[in-house]
């Protein structure tokens, strides 16, 4: 089995289009998206035809829950007034510019999905399997916690997004937790590219050369998880954000790869990796 998994899209339809093309060029035609279709970027309606045309199977993020159910905010849980100010600009723009039929579509998305392939049990969720808007940062999440989460939710591989930064941890008995990254904005590392994840299992896993054994297995089935850096037309996105009157702070992130807002929830290690 081979899958491409996308994290938050944040209205970045240009990155979504590039990701679908990039994955297809790698021979993949099965796509999942872990939610947060809106936020941050321009023209919210443009992601939906792309998702539907490619048959991307979507689950609901906290943003989709909010927009779909006409809530007042994105449920990101910020407490810093500056963070809330920018989160609200983004939310109100996205809500205002999302067509009612797309809102209804988001409202009806499932909050999790399960897939069993080659004997491996995958669990797709947004933040964590137990709470849609839970932040699981690499530096503040212990291995025993992830292990318990995977075991309690009967999963070998737990896939999430929500924090905006890709990472993975190997757990007991070959289990894994994988944050697939996001397509919506760069990862606060000074690069303009975004990230998605490809998973190959069983006979679709590239064969090891010579006497080398499979790098990783779950239930004795080989598995390969690749984080894919994706270049896309970020200058065009920045220009369109400008045309739509979105904040300069957001545009700066797209152009320069550093997060400028919503920094309060970052743990110190992730915060220190950025510029602000």
């Amino acid at each position: 089995m081979k899958l491409a998994i996308f994290g938050g899209i944040y209205n970045n339809y240009l990155a979504l289009e590039a990701a679908i093309a990039d994955a297809r060029a790698r021979g993949i035609d099965q796509f999942y998206c872990l939610g947060d279709l809106g936020a941050f970027g321009p023209y919210p309606n443009r992601v939906f035809p792309l998702l539907k045309e490619a048959g991307v199977i979507c689950i609901q993020g906290n943003y989709d829950d909010s927009i779909g159910n006409d809530l007042d905010d994105c449920q990101c849980g910020y407490t810093d007034p500056r963070d809330n100010h920018f989160a609200q600009i983004s939310y109100e723009y996205t809500y205002r510019n999302t067509a009612p039929e797309n809102r209804r579509w988001m409202r009806d998305l499932p909050t999790e999905l399960r897939l069993e392939a080659d004997g491996i049990r995958f669990l797709f969720c947004h933040g964590s399997p137990r709470q849609t808007n839970e932040f699981l940062w690499e530096s503040t999440t212990s291995t025993q916690f992830l292990d318990k989460l995977a075991i309690d939710h009967n999963a070998d591989i737990v896939l999430a997004t929500h924090t905006g930064i890709h990472w993975q941890r190997e757990l007991s008995d070959g289990r894994r937790f994988v944050n697939v990254g996001v397509l919506g904005r760069p990862e606060n590392d000074g690069s303009t590219n975004v990230w998605y994840t490809i998973i190959r299992t069983g006979k679709d896993t590239p064969k090891p050369t010579g006497s080398a054994r499979w790098d990783s297995t779950v239930n004795n089935i080989p598995i390969e998880i690749d984080f894919i850096p994706l270049a896309y037309n970020h200058q065009r996105l920045a220009q369109e954000m400008q045309n739509e009157g979105l904040p300069e702070e957001f545009i700066d992130t797209i152009r320069n790869g550093w997060w400028t807002t919503c920094l309060e929830v970052l743990p110190s290690r992730e915060r220190l990796a950025g510029k602000w």
Binding site: Q75, F135, T140, V265
Partner: peptide
Amino acid sequence: TNPSASKSSTT
């Protein structure tokens, strides 16, 4: 708890 462990409620 720290802001990074925020457990804001969902509806």
